[in-house]
Design a protein around this nucleic acid. Structure first.
Lengths: 243, 243
DNA sequence: GCCATGCATATTGTATCCAACCAAGGCCGC
DNA sequence: GCGGCCTTGGTTGGATACAATATGCATGGC
């Protein structure tokens, strides 16, 4: 029932489901959907100019990715993590990624390092222009470039997913507390340690880098929640009480 | 705001899609579908007595779970892992689970241990009756009971997924090489170390337990592939999506 | 006046139908 | 005889239509 008028987001021809999934995921990752508010399939479908079926399949994919949760017959909502869970996310990342880095370092070639440098340059240039949109992607590119020589595809997949979750929350914190500069500095320092073939130090720096970011994020979230307790603009928050 | 504690499950409202997903996953996990053979949607739909829509959504869920892979217009196949990837799976498990166990031990109460004992008894009884069907579930119950006191839900989710993948391959190996007895013995030994509050030893035993199972499985797979002239290279092509 | 019950509405879940696409096999040209 | 093109069958992808279910409100009883 879409009117022949121009739809909001023109989608190039690929499989509609995957495009829809990417579109919704992208919006979730940049906070386009308010947390806790149900994702109306009809609304999303009309907005993207597709039917409800691709939207449903995309939502199911995202459910399995952990970004949304389905309540039977009641709709899907953007899944939110508690500060404790976010902290756990970063701790798990620190654990796995430090191990990955140690495994990767013996196989690292100058080409790998050059590529990491390139990514960091792009990263920095992007931030200098104030583009926070591609931050998560570039951050992952850098980290994965560091771990790729380990040759551990399965672990990489797991870490990639963890990164996606982290980025969703890190985005808002970074923009407000200027953590980007710190991230760049820490990235450069890690690269220096790697160049010196100091695996222990590189892993320690990486661990500190990740844990520090996590703690900063959790502190930010707690402060935000404590300070502005209810920023809800007259959102009728009806909590059906199960008897 | 999500309630802090574990939410009580009122009634597991099963929708056809979720039932279909469980059915297909169950079949995949017990090797009901030959690896590499495409999963025909109509066939599965007719077999389960449902329409194709729930089958499609179930397959998409399983895709995101990593159990099947979609080729754009050519259907879905049961995703297979190379021996190297399987070995990596177990190594990753060993890493994460040992860490979980160390974190859990300080919070472990006699009740936790008793529950683990109960699970092991059930496990043993089940194996004595020759039931390998519920092996994966019981194995996960035991391991998760050990890690639950750590209070790390996110990590538990990750490990749960890794377990599912491992079980799929472990099932066949266990049935043929009588690894069950060894698993039980090792489980008991781990419990003994935990009871003695020897975290280091418990973690070491757990790590050996997991890595040993993985190595046995990989050896089994290699022997099988070498013995049988199955030229099927099982090219484990992962979908690489440029982002 | 308050609580329970029934109805209305909106949203999700499922089925059926049509189009797009890939793969294979036959046909024609060289 | 062989290779390329086209047709054809079959499968998946997507849209529309219908059924099931939960939520919210109104109404009636206590």
């Amino acid at each position: 029932m879409a009117p022949p008028g121009p739809v909001d987001l023109p989608i190039e021809r690929q499989t509609v489901t995957s495009l829809t999934r990417d579109a919704i995921r992208d919006r979730i990752l940049r906070g386009g959907y308010p947390a806790g508010q149900p994702l109306r399939q009809d609304a999303i479908a009309e907005q993207l100019g597709v039917s409800r079926i691709p939207v449903r399949e995309a939502l199911r994919l995202l459910e399995a990715e952990g970004l949304v949760t389905f309540n039977p017959h009641r709709g899907a909502v953007v899944s939110t993590l508690s500060p404790a869970e976010i902290e756990e996310l970063f701790e798990l990342r620190a654990e796995i990624e430090a191990d990955l880095l140690v495994r990767a370092m013996p196989h690292m070639t100058p080409a790998h390092l050059a590529r990491a440098d390139d990514i960091l340059d792009t990263y920095e240039a992007s931030l200098a222009r104030g583009q926070v949109a591609g931050w998560g992607s570039l951050n992952w590119k850098f980290h994965s470039a560091l771990y790729a020589p380990a040759g551990r595809p399965v672990t990489m997949g797991v870490v990639h997913r963890l990164h996606q979750h982290c980025d969703r929350y890190a985005r808002m914190q970074l923009a407000l507390t200027h953590g980007e500069q710190r991230a760049i500095t820490e990235h450069r320092n890690i690269l220096v340690a790697i160049r010196r073939r100091n695996a222990t130090r590189a892993a320690a720096l990486l661990r500190r880098h990740i844990l520090g970011a996590g703690q900063a994020l959790v502190a930010f979230l707690n402060a935000q929640q404590g300070g502005a307790a209810h920023a809800a603009p007259a959102s009728t928050r009806r909590r059906s009480r199960p008897s």
